[in-house]
Amino acid sequence: MTMTPHTLPAPADAGRAPGEAREIDEAIAFNGVGMTYSTNGGRPRQVLDGVDLRLARGEFTALVGRSGSGKTTLLNMVAGLVDPTSGSVTVMGRRPRDARPHLGFMLARDALLPWRSALRNVEYGLELRGVPKAERRSVALHWLDAVHLRHAERLWPWQLSQGMRQRVALARTWALDPDILVMDEPFAALDMNTRQSVQQRFVDLWQSEEHRTVLFVTHDLGEAIALADRVVVIGGGRVVEDLKVDIERPRDLPLITLNRRYEEIYQHLRGRIG
């Protein structure tokens, strides 16, 4: 079953026929992806069963679903950390492992390296990719600046608050200038106030440039609708809903929850998640 993105309340728009040439505008493609984990002694556990999903370039897609629904597994496939047991995943038309240079990666935990200063944490990805020192330093400073942390460049991670740490992680991700941002509950570990300010910073960054493709996993439906162009619900190992969020940009996060459309979409998706 292939689900095409649609908008509320109208039923699905025409969508694209399967097999149509889409090399140009397609960032990520899941083709009949299945995943079965073998368990120790027990019966193999099937997490994903035939997921078909195509993410256009520049599209911001949120994956939602109950915990254990396989959202993070899908994301790990894009990062080339796990291979599907059936079907295939392509990223920018290539094998995920080969597409890693296009990828930025962000996790719930900031995963800052404690022995590097804030600045050198932002430089980390560039360093791994062999960018010369002077260049990576100036890029890192630019992005620290963009997340309002220029004053903290010399501090060690333990000296930063949770919100600051996640902003450093945001700068680290952006410093790589990735075509695709892969994010696994990046704001889940933050308290509500910090969360809102980091989310806003993130949305501002994303909206301020020609758009990067984002694949965003979250269990927070409100966050998914507020941030994304498209919300995909995963359930029972499949795509059970694929909905366009037709709320205009730029968006102002604290106010978006007052939007009537937001409320409608929220209620609809809640029903789909069950």
Binding site: L81, R100, F105, L107, V182
Partner: peptide, 8 residues
């Protein structure tokens, strides 16, 4: 995990 994806 992060380092691997970043290209290490």
């Amino acid at each position: 995990r992060l380092s691997t994806v970043l290209g290490a």
